[in-house]
C-alpha cells in the first residue's frame, strides 16, 4: 500500500481491539479511527475501558487481539507476511516519542524543577543541546502560562500548575499525537479551567488529540468527535453538540442523563 498526500493514513486505527486482565475483559472489540488534526473526546462510565484503550495506543498496556495502528504501523509489532513480530523495546520506546501523554495524577518528576521536567526527555532522548532545550522549554512553559515558575519544584506548584507543566513536558518531544487520560479529574474545581484552556489552545494549533474526560462542556466546545464507550466497546460516535443534546443509543442517553 502506498501513501499519498490526498489519502493520508489516519493517525490511529483500531479494529476489534480486545484486552483482558485475567478474567476481566476490559476491551471487547474497540473500533475507532482518529484522523490527523482531529480532537476526539472519549466519555463513558468508569470501568468502560476508555483509559485502558488510551494506554494501549502508546503500549503502556498491550492489547490482546485486533488491529491497532498508529501512523499506519501496528503498535508494538512489525508486520511481515501476515505475521506480527514483537518489536525490540528500544524501537517501541522510540515510537513512544511521537506520542505525548498527560496523566490524571500529573506524574511530574518530583526531584526536578518545572524546567528540568520539560528538558529531561529532549536532552536525554533527542540529544538536543542543553541551552537550546532550555530555550525551548521556557517558551513552552510560557505558552502554558508558567513563565514565572521555571525553577519551582512540583511540590511548590498547585495541581493545575503541575498539570500544565506536564502538558509542556509532553509537548517538548514535539509529538504528533497527544493522549490525555482524565487530565482534570484530580484537580480542585477552580483549577480545572486553566488546564482546559491550555488544551483548547493546543487543539486550535492543530494537534491531534484523544482526550478521556468527564468535562462535557469541554467536549462540546473543543472536540470534533465525541465517542461514548461502555462495557469495553464503542457504543456511539458523533458530533459532540448533536450527541450531547440528542443521543441516539439507549445507554448513551442513560449515561448523559446522569452526568449532564
Amino acid at each position: 500500500m502506498t501513501l499519498t498526500t490526498e489519502n493520508p493514513v489516519p493517525m490511529v486505527v483500531a479494529q476489534g481491539v480486545t484486552k483482558s486482565f485475567g478474567t476481566n475483559h476490559v476491551l471487547k472489540g474497540v473500533n475507532l479511527e482518529v484522523q490527523r488534526g482531529q480532537v476526539l473526546c472519549l466519555i463513558g462510565p468508569s470501568g468502560s475501558g476508555k483509559s485502558t484503550f488510551l494506554r494501549c495506543i502508546n503500549r503502556l498496556e498491550t492489547s490482546d487481539a485486533g488491529i491497532l495502528t498508529v501512523d499506519g504501523s501496528p503498535v508494538g509489532y512489525k508486520e511481515k507476511g501476515g505475521k506480527f513480530y514483537e518489536l525490540h523495546p528500544k524501537v517501541i520506546a522510540a515510537k513512544r516519542r511521537e506520542i505525548g501523554m498527560v496523566f490524571q495524577r500529573f506524574n511530574l518528576f518530583p526531584h526536578k524543577t518545572a524546567l528540568e521536567n520539560v528538558i529531561e526527555a529532549p536532552v536525554l532522548l533527542k540529544k538536543i543541546p542543553k541551552a537550546q532545550a532550555i530555550a525551548q522549554a521556557k517558551e513552552l512553559l510560557t505558552r502554558v502560562g508558567l513563565a514565572e515558575r521555571f525553577d519551582y519544584y512540583p511540590s511548590q506548584l498547585s495541581g493545575g500548575q503541575q498539570q500544565r507543566v506536564a502538558v509542556a513536558r509532553a509537548l517538548a518531544m514535539e509529538p504528533e499525537l497527544m493522549l490525555f487520560d482524565e487530565p482534570t479529574s484530580a484537580l480542585d474545581p477552580e483549577l480545572v479551567g486553566e488546564v482546559l484552556e491550555v488544551m483548547q489552545d493546543l487543539a486550535r494549533s492543530g494537534m491531534t488529540m484523544i482526550v478521556v474526560t468527564h468535562e462535557m462542556a469541554f467536549a462540546r466546545e473543543v472536540a470534533d468527535t465525541l465517542v461514548f464507550m461502555d462495557g469495553g466497546v464503542v457504543v456511539e460516535t458523533g458530533n459532540p453538540r448533536e450527541m450531547l443534546s440528542n443521543p441516539q443509543h439507549e445507554r448513551t442517553k442513560e449515561f448523559l442523563s446522569k452526568v449532564l
Binding site: N58, A93, R97, N107, A121, L125
Partner: peptide
C-alpha cells in the same frame, strides 16, 4: 506513575 511517565516520554 513515575516509571510510566518516563516510559511514555520514550525512555
Amino acid at each position: 506513575g513515575q516509571e510510566e511517565a518516563a516510559v511514555a516520554l520514550g525512555m
